[in-house]
Simulated assay, not measured.
Amino acid sequence: MNVYLRRYWQLYALVALPIVYFFVFKYGPMYGAQIAFKDFNFFKGINGSDWIGFEAFREVFKNPDFVIALRNTFMLNLLDLLVSFPAPIILAIILFEIKVVWFKKLSQTILYIPHFISWVIIGGIVYQVFGNESGMINNILTGMGYSSIPFLSDKNYWLITYLLTGAWQSAGWGTILYLAALTGINKELFEAAEVDGAGRMKRIWHITLPGIKTTVATLLILNLGNMVSIGFDRPYIIGNLIVRDYSEVLSTFVYRVGLESGQYTLATVVGLFQAVVGLIFLIGANFASKKLTGDGII
């Protein structure tokens, strides 16, 4: 062991940085999870606050706003999984099949750009394009004599806008892992299949997709583990009071209860609930994946 440390100390030093990061920013904050079981007082601090057991949990679970936020979180994550998860797989296969190098690189660059745009900017773009009164699409429709479409004020239209915007923002960046997996497939398999007369679709079905099966299974498990967690930016920026029945999710609920109302105990309860349920989903998805496909992450 000492020999390896002396010989490869640079690699161990590089590994030490993410380890420190996880201890400071992931494991360290776990100390504050006890707030969920205390009547937290900002001036008394965590240790000085009184223990209340599971009283805060009962209060949260009886809150109708929490039930709505939990339902919407599951619904939006599930629909995101159905819409956004296959998108990078399809894009990666299309890019992999492109043989013109300059066009392939240009396409990749264009597809990657949305990932680096802030959701605040994307939200502005969404309102400029899909706005009810001043949106570009509705201006064109009304100019042609058609009725405007309530993209952001009708719950069903808002849901479609939310899902397509998320797919557009994440699909290009998600292709990176799949393209890396595709480049690892033995090229002789494609050549042999082509000699045997297999068309493009048969090569994709019998060689390309099985070649990235492990990557797909791993990312699907990780996505299922995040079914109870959802980003704050997209539902908060694109959502509004009119479509709150769909846009209110756990992250926005925590923001309203914890930061706006100052009920830190209730906000911590929701965070702890998300962590526990997320862990259960992750272990369950991994177990099911290993049983069905033989691939897992644990």
Rank of each mutant, 00 (worst) to 15 (best):
N2H: 14
Y8G: 13
Q10G: 08
L11A: 14
A13W: 11
L14M: 08
V15Y: 14
V15L: 15
A16V: 00
L17P: 13
I19G: 06
Y21R: 11
Y21D: 14
Y21E: 07
F22Y: 12
V24H: 07
F25E: 04
K26C: 06
K26N: 07
Y27F: 02
G28P: 09
Y31W: 15
Y31R: 15
Q34M: 02
F40L: 04
F40N: 12
G45Q: 03
I46G: 12
S49Q: 14
D50N: 02
G53D: 01
A56V: 09
F66G: 03
F66I: 01
V67L: 15
R71V: 01
M75Y: 09
L79R: 07
L79F: 11
L82C: 04
A87C: 00
A87L: 14
I90Y: 14
I90Q: 00
I90S: 06
L91E: 03
I93Q: 08
W102F: 06
F103R: 15
L106D: 05
T109S: 13
I110E: 03
F116S: 05
S118R: 14
S118E: 14
W119V: 11
V120K: 15
I121N: 14
I122A: 02
I125Y: 15
I125C: 08
Y127H: 05
Q128W: 12
V129D: 05
F130V: 00
F130D: 01
G131W: 03
G131K: 07
S134E: 14
I137D: 06
G145D: 03
S147L: 05
S148N: 08
S148C: 09
I149L: 08
P150K: 02
Y157S: 01
Y162M: 02
T165N: 13
W168P: 05
G174Y: 07
Y178G: 04
L179I: 00
A180Q: 09
I185R: 01
I185S: 02
I185Q: 05
L189C: 11
F190D: 00
E194M: 15
V195L: 13
A198Y: 14
G199D: 05
K202S: 13
R203E: 07
L209W: 06
L209D: 09
T214G: 12
V216M: 11
V216T: 08
L222A: 08
L222I: 02
G225C: 07
D233S: 10
V243A: 00
V243F: 01
E248R: 11
V249T: 10
L250C: 12
F253P: 08
F253I: 06
V257W: 10
L266M: 11
V269N: 07
G271W: 06
V277M: 06
V277E: 15
F281R: 09
I283C: 12
A285N: 04
F287Y: 06
K290W: 03
L292E: 05
L292T: 00
T293K: 10
I298M: 14
